[in-house]
Design a protein around this nucleic acid. Sequence first.
DNA 1: CGGGATATTGACTCTTATCAATGCCCGTGG
DNA 2: CCACGGGCATTGATAAGAGTCAATATCCCG
Lengths: 226, 226
Amino acid sequence: MLTQSAVPQTAYEPPFTFPSSQKPAVSNSLAPVGLVMSFGRNAEIYAEGEISGYVYRVLSGVVRVSKLLPDGRRQISAFHMPGEMFGFEAGEIHYASAEAVIPTKVVAFKWEGLLDVGSKQINVVRELLSLAVLGLRRSQDHLLLLGRKNALERLAAFLLQMDARSGLSHVVDLAMPRHDIADYLGLTLETVSRMLAELKEAGTIKLESARRVHLLDVAKLKAMSA
Amino acid sequence: MLTQSAVPQTAYEPPFTFPSSQKPAVSNSLAPVGLVMSFGRNAEIYAEGEISGYVYRVLSGVVRVSKLLPDGRRQISAFHMPGEMFGFEAGEIHYASAEAVIPTKVVAFKWEGLLDVGSKQINVVRELLSLAVLGLRRSQDHLLLLGRKNALERLAAFLLQMDARSGLSHVVDLAMPRHDIADYLGLTLETVSRMLAELKEAGTIKLESARRVHLLDVAKLKAMSA
DNA sequence: CGGGATATTGACTCTTATCAATGCCCGTGG
DNA sequence: CCACGGGCATTGATAAGAGTCAATATCCCG
């Protein structure tokens, strides 16, 4: 596997660096060669149940990682932006599936290769550990959000999170449709829409368009998100 | 830190082994010395915001890891049973707090020491990575539960999870009060109580006492948990 | 045996889901 | 260039699930 919609796989040339946005505890010392793959909108990167053997880094686009219940209910556990790594399930069966939200390029690294004892690759393993620990942290925030926050707080937190990751001017471009946001926040798309309207009412955001949100009052949003 | 209620700290003697219940990918090759600490009911093991420097293994008792919202709402991200490791936040600030649910003994290992390049400790780092990845997996399940399952499904899943971890005869001893279960499942304690009553109605469980549940029909419970 | 903490049960409320009707935006083709 | 069509989003009316508040009940522990 490693997918159908995979496209001309070109070697990804060194220097390899782990994304600075994920602050590895130890700076990288490795330049593994990865495979660059391209995916169209909604294309599957890997599926729940497939054999896993790679970890991925987003080069461009946006990736969603999700799990499904037998009756179709879906929970998105994370969105991944350029520079971020995902797919930490290697050596076994994929525990979730990953899809491109929009046209996306990723580099895939063989997990096995990364773990090879061969040399001083201990730094690589450490960086992977560091990334995994970071993932655990983010999970804790998301668990708190899903378990204990109301719909309005979830939306405020989501917008702030997207803003923090997109940097710049507090104008957030949402790559994903309402339905994806809903499945990420444990809500319905209608509720997502209503809460956005409510935040607009409160003067904390402005909807330039459905997919482009201008955060007018970040402080207030922060207050609302907790 | 590393706590007030810490008690006569005796050295934990080798051989050290990572818990088999967490299947490290690589068998252990290290016997670090840890500090054994004892905690009473509800005693704090570490608090959110404290400097972190240890990872822990439960020797006996039960540990809960949680995060708090400013207004007091609480989300328990995990319960840890004997043999399990927790506290993977080392090198930085604790992102959550951990407390003993009942009188509990843990061994604390210096994170720094575990990561030391000194030798062929690469296996230790790998095992830690393996445990972190396992933690990520469990988080995904919990996210799905919190984001998309109803109260009855959550209770069924919880009981099955506790049963799987306690082994034996489908008689589960719950160390924690209803309030903790509620904060773990993102519910209120009243709802937990009502759903248990409902499961009893359905003939899937029997409440030997408030803290002791007999799973009468595991298959049916499984069907209800999804 | 008594008493405080923990748990259950009930009545009612409130948030969010559900079902349904428009509305809007954008790309396509006439 | 404009009209059409389809996906996506918004808005409304209602329902359902879980929360809240409150009154017992039960279980330990001393």
